[in-house]
Design a protein around this nucleic acid. Sequence first.
DNA 1: TCGGCAACCTACTCGTGCGTAACCCTACGC
DNA 2: GCGTAGGGTTACGCACGAGTAGGTTGCCGA
Lengths: 215, 215
Amino acid sequence: MLARMSTPPTFRRLPRAVRERQMLDSALKVFSRRGFHAASVDEIAEDAGISKPMVYAYLGTKEELFLACLRREVDRLMEAVARVVEPELPPDEQLWRGLRAFFGFVGAHRDGWLMLYRQARGQEPFAGETAAMRARIVVVVAGMLGRALHAEGREVRDTELEAVAYALVGATESLADWLAEHPDADPDKTANQMMNLAWLGAGQLLRGEVWRPSP
Amino acid sequence: MLARMSTPPTFRRLPRAVRERQMLDSALKVFSRRGFHAASVDEIAEDAGISKPMVYAYLGTKEELFLACLRREVDRLMEAVARVVEPELPPDEQLWRGLRAFFGFVGAHRDGWLMLYRQARGQEPFAGETAAMRARIVVVVAGMLGRALHAEGREVRDTELEAVAYALVGATESLADWLAEHPDADPDKTANQMMNLAWLGAGQLLRGEVWRPSP
DNA sequence: TCGGCAACCTACTCGTGCGTAACCCTACGC
DNA sequence: GCGTAGGGTTACGCACGAGTAGGTTGCCGA
């Protein structure tokens, strides 16, 4: 049985680099849906169209595979944002471009976003990786806000600034999550909504206006 | 070896209700740190000071145990918020009280928050449970904003309102997460910051002010 | 005081899934 | 044409952990 079909090289031997990409693609697909523990290396190998020992030969243990996959997504996301945010631009334009790139990435790479946001947090060996990424982003956002306010002649305490940045990053992630679950939604429109909330809301807040507890 | 110590009833037999509480407490502790899959029923049983078959006898399978644990935390959180948010209050006062209760809960029940936020999302059998809770909260927040704006004579499209509510819930969660990792921080102060961001930011935004893409 | 129920245990079975040993086969350089 | 390196496989060892069978002990009411 299984006599050779008329096209012998249907199951081609492929160079290592190509196979590694395929494996990482499959790993992303499976890990992002199931999470680290519920995913099995067998399933990833099958999805990639090769057998399990190849995965171990090329990418190492399951943990290393998850990390390689995670790092690739972190790099893709950071690179997509960094490419459009030029340092000479005014802060609001930087934020706007960054948000567009971010939501664009989430819209185009649902799995990558789920990997970063849903799976890599909490699971202990990997939580630090995303936490570090988040921290970098928070610092960048806080910097933008700080510079924008400085340009208007206002100074705000760093801890205050960082808390606002933290909240804005969270709001952005939340909308990204919403976007990931509404594939027909428009990333640019979402970016616009977030930009409004960030620029008007945080700006006015940091400018000194406050809501008073007892009316 | 291990001859009976001088205090025979040190390891007391306890009524079922008490044991179940202890088990759920231990389950929360272990699940919130390790996640569903990495946690073992043996570890939970050991932490609770009993043996594994007791867990199965009282709370059922591992999945049912996780669900019972999760539902208890959902109920606690919702109850803590519902207790202070009286429907007759003006919307801003409702939001303020709700935020205080929420951050208070997170500060006092770190594990409960991690269970809800980090572990129960993404892991497939349970994701729906927290998603439903989130959805309820988003609707409530959107309702508050809508009523507040209505009182000022403004109407905003429901989708717009929901997106803003989604972002605010995300911002709140993000600050809660920050709070959970800074045990010395003050929940009330965090609630105040979030209140400012929500009330000033979202309010002004929904009132019609926009940031324009090209300056 | 004595049955019996309910709390609790030890000691298994058995499936699942990571990681590997030991092999095959084809293309390409020489 | 032939050896070898590298792409590929099957089939297994082995550990860990969910879930259970079956027994033991203490408490409480009649």
